[in-house]
Amino acid sequence: MNDISSEVETWNELKSTTGARIDVGRAGTRPLTSNMLRLRLDHAAAIDAVYSEVPRELIEEMGLLSVNTLASDKVQYLKRPDLGRRFTTTSADAIQASCLHAPQVQIVVSDGLSAAAIEANLKEVYSSLLDSLNSLGLEAGTPIYVERGRVGSMDHIGDILQPEVLVLLIGERPGLLSASSMSAYMCYKPCIGKLDSDRNVISNIHESGTPPAEAGARIASMLKAMLDQRRSGTELVF
């Protein structure tokens, strides 16, 4: 009996080191109902994160200028990443007319592949980011919300507003572990033609990853490094 219980204890130790869905049992060769439904529920949360929209009230409350990319609906957005990187003429004009030009720091927010990520994390990340920028003595321009945006949309904004550095807070492709994970993509003097290797990213911003309250400080210090070194991407020493 002692042997068996010590084995189980060892197994429990092993099992506790992974989040994989193991030791789940079976009905014949099929999964148990509760495990099957748990998987379905997690997938449902991921799907809902992709297809939902960021509430208008949140965008207004945060004082973001809301603009649209060329992707006219979610389906087109998913099929044509190129359209999510460029703005409609109306939106480009609105950015030109309503935003502070050549700011030191341009903050941009986008739903990307998870509106849920913005809903869950934006308020905390945004306020901690503003606090940190403030204490580093950095000035932010007019914040923008991009509906159905891709990472490359920051380059188009860079062409219009000529910020020194830009940070894009965007919803990540949802996984089953977290459907509301956000990334912060940053670039020094963004413009059309920049490559992935010109940008830096802090990913996995969510409650069980990088906590939103800490993310703001990390983003601000990375932006500061870009301003000091006048570069970003693989060249940045951080």
Partner: peptide
């Protein structure tokens, strides 16, 4: 495990 790859997220 249960079709869910907890590392590759697919």
């Amino acid at each position: 495990p249960m079709a869910d790859d907890c590392m590759l997220n697919y």
